[in-house]
Design a protein around this nucleic acid. Structure first.
Lengths: 249, 249
DNA sequence: AGCCTTATTGAAACGCGTCTTAATTTAACT
DNA sequence: AGTTAAATTAAGACGCGTTTCAATAAGGCT
């Protein structure tokens, strides 16, 4: 190990912590590497030397956050297939407690040109999901001819997509919850054994009723999309880095 | 209409055409507004005056492309639920014929901070999908208690997600096809009436067999993600705008 | 202790998307 | 035709993520 590595690790922690505080700071959608370096009290070249990119920094922040998820998940014992819906609930709760933070995280992951980073967000969750699917197969809730890996990937992929939609501001948190559960109950209903399929279909219809009119959403987006010209000459130059820096000391 | 509007429309077409050619040009991943303006022979401010943003330009390009999709789709008559898988096939064929072009398009849409733009890619397709779902419900292939809008949205959302994964370089075109069809057959199997469910489950298992090991993919991503430091000091400064401009005249 | 290697710094630079501004061209109207 | 309103231009600027590079600091080693 040696002192060299220790300092490196220390500075990594410092930067990740600063990044988290910066991401959690409200009223500012900007989170630039220059302000990060400033807040962390390091040179603007250091985060690049230690992480390589902005997305890698955010990925590191999100990594440390995975513990929150698993501990919240296991806080309450859940039986049967409900664990899948429970995962959605926990996620939504975390998002609700810190929306801006998770939005920035999700958007940064989404924008990741570096493929490896997307996995930081998805991979541990995939592992969890796959284990739950395996359990369900062993219990006999899910058809044994279903491949746990592929099924978990589809489940997680779908969930992840709705998270992105939420981070983009396309849907509300409630919709994220309902759409994710709707999709999950649909996939589960297909994969489930006959015994539990009916119950899943009932749930599916419940989630469907809770969903907003897709037509309404589409209509809103259409009219917005029709304004093809540049109508936003409103000078959105309100970003004020100094206020953030000072607030974080 | 008047000449003023005519000129405006003409210049819009000019820019959209130039943008398409630029996006189709291989060997260059860069497609900057400055080169676009250069190639189109207009000032770099004009695209902004006419479209508002880079994503709006790309959205306009993709808009004109939707006709390709629908005409290719209706070229061959398809019966029953196969239309959903046919949509995947057509999409994949188009993508295969012009990968770089569609990748850039999908990535630009993905990165759209302007929410309205994402709908340019998804909305017409949603309308198509919803109509197909409605047809299937009327035929009795899909349970009449399923809401066509919500179901179509889930179907399209899932497909869209795999497209993004492909555009990001996470999966190959073949996998895009199989994963999309796997997800579709899963959703359809849940929503389908009893008569067709079994056939869908058979298809589902076929697609599942065609899928690569999710574990393998995950492993690759993990090892890549482990290289947290900046290992890519390879000076990726090979972008040469001039060559593109000259190639396009 | 002194030397050597490695990490960090500061500052500048690049290319990007985008916006601004003043000047110029162009269409519309009287 | 001349005036007015609008679109287009050129040029520069801003902030961003990222990279480069010489100078400096700091740990490792003998």
């Amino acid at each position: 190990m040696g002192k060299r590595q220790d300092n490196r690790d220390e500075k990594r922690k410092l930067i990740v912590d600063s990044a988290r505080r910066l991401m959690q700071a409200r009223a500012t959608s900007d989170f630039s590497m220059r302000t990060l370096a400033d807040v962390a009290g390091v040179s603007s070249a250091t985060p690049y030397s230690l992480f390589g990119s902005k997305q890698a920094v955010i990925a590191a922040v999100m990594d440390t956050d995975f513990d929150n998820f698993t501990s919240a998940l296991s806080a309450k014992p859940v039986i049967g297939l409900d664990i899948f819906f429970h995962m959605v609930d926990i996620t939504v709760e975390l998002f609700a407690a810190n929306p801006g933070y998770y939005k920035k995280g999700a958007l940064a992951i989404q924008a990741a040109s570096d493929k490896a980073l997307a996995s930081h967000f998805g991979l541990p969750r995939h592992g969890l999901l796959r284990d739950f699917v395996r359990d369900a197969i062993q219990r006999g809730d899910i058809n044994h001819r279903i491949n746990a890996d592929s099924f978990a990937l589809t489940l997680g992929h779908q969930f992840y997509g709705w998270i992105q939609a939420w981070a983009n501001g396309d849907i509300k948190l409630d919709d994220l919850s309902n759409r994710a559960k709707y999709g999950m109950s649909m996939a589960l209903a297909a994969a489930a054994t006959a015994d539990v399929r009916d119950a899943l279909m009932v749930q599916l219809l419940n989630f469907q009723d809770a969903l907003p009119e897709a037509g309404a959403m589409a209509a809103i987006q259409t009219t917005a999309a029709m304004t093809t010209s540049a109508n936003k000459k409103t000078t959105t130059n309100l970003s004020n880095n100094n206020s953030v820096k000072e607030a974080l000391g």
